[in-house]
């Protein structure tokens, strides 16, 4: 399978302005991502993970730097790019007074899919995700996991080339987690690129071809798990993460917490 660069980020900067205060979230990120890869994008809270994903999906438009997705400039060809990407956000952002069928139909229409095709896909996917019985219920009564399943379907329904995911497995039951992991691996085999942002290290460790660690708006480490592992005396991803983000001393903190509880 031929691989080529599908995402190219050069010197990406992003700041949030809130009144007089400026919060510089991304401070010069450079990345080249090839097709058919599962990228694990990890980092502590506030590192800039979600901001990167939101910029790449065209949600946040005022950034500095150059971004090319699928060979197209994100600033000028965003609509063409958006036709070929899928986004699965972190918090269950859904119009939850709609039913799954209505919502997925809506998403399909926005992607210009043919109506018959949307309906067939919805029926099949809801069935496979064990959501068929709830197809015509309003989603505001759904559990977090059920909503997450709908979000996953809505991000994949138009068969995108790149899939951006922000904590996609949160709230899912064990079976669904296994299914989604297999789906992602299969999609990557077919040449799709998966940009997977998460806190859950062991999932990232298991499914990612390449791991990018970001902290405080800069990339701290970038490579396959094996590469990162060999550079750091065969440590687990969790330990590596701790070391690189400068947050060592977890055992001491844990001991102190126990002390506080026991006294």
């Amino acid at each position: 399978m031929e691989t080529n660069t599908v995402i190219s980020i050069k010197n990406l900067h992003k700041a949030y302005k809130n009144g007089a205060s400026v919060n510089q979230v991304l401070k010069g990120v450079d990345l080249e991502i090839q097709s058919g890869q599962i990228i694990g994008y990890i980092g502590p809270n506030g590192a800039g993970k979600s901001t990167t994903v939101k910029i790449l999906c065209g949600i946040l438009t005022d950034f500095e730097g150059d971004i090319k997705v699928l060979g197209m400039d994100l600033r000028t060809q965003d609509i063409e790019i958006k036709k070929r990407i899928g986004y699965i956000p972190e918090n269950a952002a859904l119009y939850d007074t709609l039913t799954p069928s209505e919502y997925l139909q809506f998403v399909g229409e926005l992607h210009g899919m043919e109506e018959g095709n949307i309906r067939t896909k919805i029926a099949r996917l809801l069935d496979l995700f064990e959501m068929k019985a709830h197809a015509n219920e309003r989603m505001n009564s759904f559990s977090k996991g059920m909503k997450q399943k709908i979000l996953i379907i809505s991000g994949l329904i138009h068969n995108p080339d790149i899939i951006f995911m922000d904590e996609p497995l949160s709230g899912l039951d064990a079976n669904a987690v296994i299914i989604v992991k297999r789906v992602l691996q299969q999609l990557a085999k077919e040449g799709k690129t998966i940009f997977y942002s998460s806190h859950i290290m062991d999932v990232v460790e298991k499914i990612s071809d390449r791991i990018i660690l970001i902290d405080n708006g800069v990339v701290l480490a970038d490579g396959s798990y094996a590469d990162l592992n060999s550079e750091s005396d065969n440590e687990s991803l969790e330990n590596l993460f701790t070391k690189l983000t400068g947050n060592s001393g977890h055992s001491e903190t844990a001991n102190e917490i126990i002390n506080v509880f026991e006294n």
Binding site: I59, I79, K82, K83, Y87, N91, A93, Y95, L110, H111
Partner: peptide, 13 residues
């Protein structure tokens, strides 16, 4: 604000 996650990543001019 749900529009941000639902509408903005879609190919809508």
């Amino acid at each position: 604000t749900r529009d941000n996650a639902i509408l903005l990543p879609r190919p809508i001019n």
